[in-house]
Computed example of a mutant assay.
Amino acid sequence: MTEFEDQGLPLTALAVAAGRAVETTRPDALAADPFATGLVEAARSHVDFPTVWPAHPEAAPPLQQPLLLASIYIGLRTRFIDDFLEQRQQTAQAVILGAGLDTRAYRLSWPAGARVYELDLANVLDFKAAVMASFAARPACELVSVTADLSQPWEQPLLAAGFDPQQPTTWVIEGLLPYLSANAQLATLQAVLALSPSGSRAVIERAVPLPAGEDVEAKLRDFSAQTGLSMGELLARANPPDPARLLEAAGWECSEHPIRELCVRYGRTISLTATDGSAQGRPLKRESQDTGQSRGGFVTAGLPAHT
């Protein structure tokens, strides 16, 4: 396999790819990404991302346990979006906003003649393309990579790449909105509305609103000190638009899916549990206390034909 020097890839993109790699190795895997481990290894990150679900997760190094816990959520999210994309209402055109190291263009079934647009930063898309080429992997669709900073307007680069705003489109907004300011989230959702004719559909991972209060502000100050992000930048994300309300006002039919629904649907709990006979099923110290409620859940939506 070709080796690649550090290219300044976002750690979040690598962490999500590692989460898919871990999910793929589980005996009860909800999704399989045969490329995820290779992408993580090729990045040669200084972070020791786990790529295998261990037989005894409680024995994993303390720094890896939160990553293993996150992989459970990533597995749920991946399967949910995969299922949505492979439903019967597939469109011939799809857009993945903030594609990162996602490999759905390679590993899912797409309609004949489908075109998939992936938008992200140039170094992310270039790295992924080079690694996938080193695997001799071929997309199962026409894959179009579009360089864009999604915190800024991105419609023109998409249109310049050949996107047809008159054609029904499937939109995937996964893991993006939480990293945008509330204003940028609104602009992104409005752009989706403007570029979507009847017959379009979308799956959107929500951003979590931050409740007001001194406790929250204290936590934000601590987070700001740890990450170097300004309080202003953090507070700019505090009151995100509600995707369901915005789309419904534009005539879309929406369904909301909290994380608890996904856990029930796919038979998962967001916790690390012992697998030895003496403690079968007993939650360990590392577990989510809210079964994912700290996350925003998902919205699926479709724009019906005008009557």
Rank of each mutant, 00 (worst) to 15 (best):
P10F: 01
L97M: 05
L143P: 00
D215C: 03
G302D: 10
A194C: 08
P10S: 03
T91S: 09
A70I: 02
T24Y: 04
Q289S: 15
T78S: 13
L176V: 08
D28I: 05
A55F: 08
F35G: 00
L11S: 15
R282T: 12
A13C: 11
E256W: 04
A55M: 14
C254A: 05
L220T: 07
A301G: 06
F127Y: 10
T170E: 11
R104L: 07
P57D: 09
A250E: 03
S134F: 03
V203A: 14
E3C: 10
A60N: 07
P241Y: 03
A18Y: 04
T291Y: 15
V264K: 14
P240V: 10
P157Q: 09
E5Q: 12
T51I: 15
P165N: 08
E217T: 07
A194E: 06
A184K: 04
G8N: 10
P10E: 02
A105S: 15
D33A: 15
L229V: 15
G113K: 12
P66S: 08
A194R: 13
L284H: 04
R26P: 14
V95S: 05
R26M: 09
R265T: 11
D222Y: 12
S200C: 12
T307Q: 08
A148G: 02
V52I: 13
V203F: 10
A140M: 05
Y106M: 08
R107Q: 11
P27N: 15
V95C: 04
P283E: 09
A191Y: 03
A32P: 00
F298I: 01
V40G: 10
L262G: 04
R201M: 13
I173F: 14
Y106S: 01
V124L: 01
D222P: 03
S71F: 01
I259L: 10
A94E: 03
G100T: 04
Y106D: 00
T51V: 10
Y117I: 00
T25E: 05
